[in-house]
Structure formats: structure tokens, C-alpha cells
Design a protein around this nucleic acid. Sequence first.
DNA 1: TTGTAGGCGTTATCAC
DNA 2: GTGATAACGCCTACAA
Lengths: 323, 323
Amino acid sequence: MANIKDIAKAAGVSSATVSRVINQNGYVSEETRKKVELVIQQLDYVPNLNAVYLKKGATKTLGIVAPYFSDSLTVFLRGFTLSAQKEGYNVTLFMTGDDKQKELDAFEMLRRKQLDGLLLLIRLNDWKQLEPFTKYGPIVTWQRVESDHIPSVFMNHYDGYMLGLEHLYATGCRNIVNLYGSTSGLNTKSRMKAYLDFCEKYHLNPNLQPQFKGLNSSEDGEKVAHWWKEQSTKPDGFATSSDAVAAGLITEAKRLGVRVPDAFSVVGFDNIEIARLLDITTIDYPIEKQAQNAFTLIFNQLTHRENPLIPLDFHLIKRHTTK
Amino acid sequence: MANIKDIAKAAGVSSATVSRVINQNGYVSEETRKKVELVIQQLDYVPNLNAVYLKKGATKTLGIVAPYFSDSLTVFLRGFTLSAQKEGYNVTLFMTGDDKQKELDAFEMLRRKQLDGLLLLIRLNDWKQLEPFTKYGPIVTWQRVESDHIPSVFMNHYDGYMLGLEHLYATGCRNIVNLYGSTSGLNTKSRMKAYLDFCEKYHLNPNLQPQFKGLNSSEDGEKVAHWWKEQSTKPDGFATSSDAVAAGLITEAKRLGVRVPDAFSVVGFDNIEIARLLDITTIDYPIEKQAQNAFTLIFNQLTHRENPLIPLDFHLIKRHTTK
DNA sequence: TTGTAGGCGTTATCAC
DNA sequence: GTGATAACGCCTACAA
């Protein structure tokens, strides 16, 4: 593989001149430029990026870290990658499984100058472990974080969830069951708070029904359909934390001969493809915009700009799983 | 940021010794090792990977290239990334949209030593454009390729599609419509060949129904439901090229009050989550295993091994959209 | 067991 | 306009 010196030699100039030609800065006479470009063509030369990166101290590469990739994470991933590529950044994926060490490895890459910035979608380690890495480059999170040092594109799920609860109430539900997701983040806490406030507002008893937590997949939703069938005093509405759970609940109910929304109403969350397909009433959650904002936050830090963020709002998508 | 010389100075040794400690090769006395490790701790030192890569001429990073990320591509992405990470490789994502130049950019990264190998999921450029890059590192494709130089984890869709057709026939369908996907690759050609052979075998007229090509999304499937409703002599079976299309067809049919499989049968393809959720009879397509094989092919080339590949087979998953 | 020094391939600061 | 040359930070013969 030819290097810059080979080009210089073959063109009868110094490597400094070749570098100027490549990077199009500094003065080069038209004549020598032509000559150098010709040689570059002939020798099929291309600069070694590792050398460039070493010299420049940056790689134009961002990392994106998550334990797995669900539907909504994929949407985020897509939006972020597209934004990044638009500005000339590549994106490296770190799938951490449930391995905390893998997450730390990704952060190490930032420290080791392999990554210019990092997007953390779902966190595994404590913030105390991760926070020290902020000094090596911009880090942005999706989930909310108790620290002021780390910017986040987090949206308070309290508002979105409340939208769903209000809709259930408005359509006649008085005996609502919540299907919460993972309890490790703050979203479930926000949702529980929303539910309590909701109950207080309408003088409902919040302890009428058991708590369901940690539901994530459509399989989880399917189990709930069976649970519902066994109850003597049946709930008339389900508020969920994801469209996948809602989808599982609805499809399994159908298999059991239970009609939605006649028997009960369901509100999903996220507004992903499956919700549209199954006509699930859900809460639209502008993940794509969050992803763009996430990139903007990193980009601004990296380039000392102040590009504006896109404003974010939840809103209800009324479909056919509520009355 | 401390570098190796700072460590050397602080520990009162040479940078060569520090390097030996870091890489655990060469002889270092227990005493100096301890001393050096202590200093590394104290100065919070970690080697700059760009320098390491420059020196070593490899980055332990693989690229994965695709225009977009659909459900099945995401499955592939996941499998590949997990396999790669298991062997210490990172994976960089190149989302090319429909921009041929972006695809070439990714291949350039291979040439520029930023990538040790490349997985190409869906191709945009002609092979003639891409083939020259094989000399810069291992390249593996998902789609079949007319060239012998490029290994592929391609599976001949003829077999899988035939499985679906045979099943439709066995369950009584005699008037089958094919919902083919993109015509740019070879898969659709294989499927069309399968259909012709199928018709010949059972003495069916292959031109009884119009051709549907280029269907990919659930929206496309939905449109077919409307088409079906308008026909006077209605087909009794649909063979599709993706679960998404099948899902759209089925859900829209339901909205139109058409019962599946009473009115017609549907066979999906891929066996992704949505097929399970909607009880779609489909063809299982071991994408995850293909992804693992893809990594193995690259890994073998990179390390001159001969790790075995996982054998791949299609099989029919009978659910409730066929009789 | 340790140190010296050259080289990996660029970029950028000086001179000229 | 162009050319030396010193970094960037690390690894690794080869010496000692």
C-alpha cells in the first residue's frame, strides 16, 4: 500500500505538498497539484486514517450504547445514525447484553480516543461509574439522569402516560390496570406518580387492582390476557408502557375470544409500526426527533455551536382499542 | 492526557518497559511491573488506540452496510454484532439510504484501514464497482453474488418459497397469487422460478393471476387486501416474500370484514415477531444463524482459521392463516 | 531484564 | 509556493 512519501517521491515533491493537495489547504501551484493528483490516481493512493486520527486526535466516530435493540431503540438508532452521517460522523454500535463490563468498554473507547462522543440509550452501570468519563468527550443519554453534567433528551413520561389515563377516563374506564415496564429507570416511577395523581383527581381508589411491573415484550402482554380472563371483578382498561405489551395483550385476548374494546380498553405507548397495524390507541412519542436532538447535543459540544433543539411533545393517537 | 512517556518518566523506566507491562509480553521483573502499574493507576493512563492501530495496521472493527434497517435486517445486525463482540470486534454501522456514494464510502473505510472487514447486507452499487475492494480485506454479503471471489451467507429462496407453495397446495389452494418483493436482487427471481416449477408440477396455469412485485411494507400488503375484495374470481391463497406484507394483508382484510383463512390463505416469510403475534403461517428463515456464519466467514479470513459454518435450512411454521 | 531508537503515516509549523 | 522536520503515541527489533 502506497503511502504519502511514495506519492511525494513519484511526483518529485515533498510529502508536505502532497498533504496540501489532499487536504486542499495551503498554497499549491496548479501545475504541481495536477501532477500530484495524477500520481495519486496511478498509485491508487488513499491516506491511512489511523495516522490522520492519531495526528488530529479525533475520529469522527460516535458510539451508541444499549443492551439490546428493540423496536423503539431501532428507531432511535436510525435517527441518530442518519443525523450523524449527515455531518460526516460514523456510528459504532455497542450492544452490551446485560454485561456491565461491555458498557464500560464502550466508555473506554471514548477515553482511548476511538470515539468522539457517546450516546447511551439504556444504562446498566451506576452513574457514579460512568460520570468520570464525561471529561473524555460529550456523552448524551436517553433516560433521565440525576446528574446535571450529562445532557439528556429524556422526556418526562408522566405527561405522556397521563394523556393515556385521561383518555381512558374520558371513554368511561373506571377500573384501570397499569402494565408498567422496567423498574430500573425513572420512567416507571413517573408513570406511577401520574397514576396516583390521576386517581386523586378523579377520586378513584388506586389500590383496586394489583401492580404489574417489568412487562416489556408481547409475551408479557399475552399473559395479562389470561390473567384478565380469570378475574371475577374485571378491569375495564389497561394503560401500558409499550406498544409491544399492548399488542400481546390484544392479540391474545382475541385468541381467547375476548373483544377489544368491548371487554376492555387498551392504550399503548410509543406509536411504533405494530400499533398502527393493529389499530392500537397509543401515545406518540417522537423518538426520531429525540434522536436528532441527541446528535445535536453531541455535535454542539464537539464543535462549540449552539444549534437549536427540536421541541418535543407527546400526543394521543386515537385508534380502535379504546371506545 | 498522559501518554506512555509520562508513565515511563514517572516510573523511572523506559517507554519500552511500560509497553511490555501493558501488553504483557517480553520480560519485566515483578518489581518494575508493580511500579509501572501503580503509576498507570495514579495517572489514570490508558493507551491511545489510534496510535496502536496505526502501529498494528488493524482496528478490530468491522463494518456493516445496508440502505435501511427493517425488522429482518435488525435481526441480522444483532446476530452479527453479538458474534463480533464475542471475539473482540466492534461493529460500525453504515446506513446508506439509497445513496450509492455512501456505500462506496463504507468500502473506502476498508481501504483506509479503518475497518478490518465488511458485511454487506443489501447492495446498491454494481459488483464491478465493489469487487476491487476485496483486496483490502474480507467482504461478505447476504445476497447472492455472481462472483466467486465474494463469500456469501445467501440462502436460495427457491427452496423456502417452494415450501410455502406446497403447503398452500396441500391445504387446498389452487388459485394462488404471489406477492413478490424487490426485483433488484436475485431472491425474487428464485421465487418466480419456484412458482413456475410448482405450476408445472401440479398442472396449474401460472398466468391465472396478475404479478405483484416490489411489495415490502405492511402498507403494501394492506393495498392487496383491497385489490382482493374487488376481484370477481378471487384467489384462494397468497404466497408472500415477507411477514410484513403478509401482516398488512391480514390485518386490513380483517378490517374489511374478510376472514382469514376462510376467505383465503396466507403464507408469510421470515418468521419474525409479527408473524408469531398474528399467528401467521410462515417460512422460518434462520437469519440469526446466517449472521453468525457471516461473522465466521470474515473471522476465518482475518485469522486464517477454518471454523465451521452452521448448516442452514428453511422450514414451515404452520399457524392459523392457512387451513 | 531493560533501554535505545527507528518507524507506523500524517499534519502543521517553520523557514526559505 | 515549497520543503524540512518535529510532533502525534505507540510498538518492537536490537543492543546492552
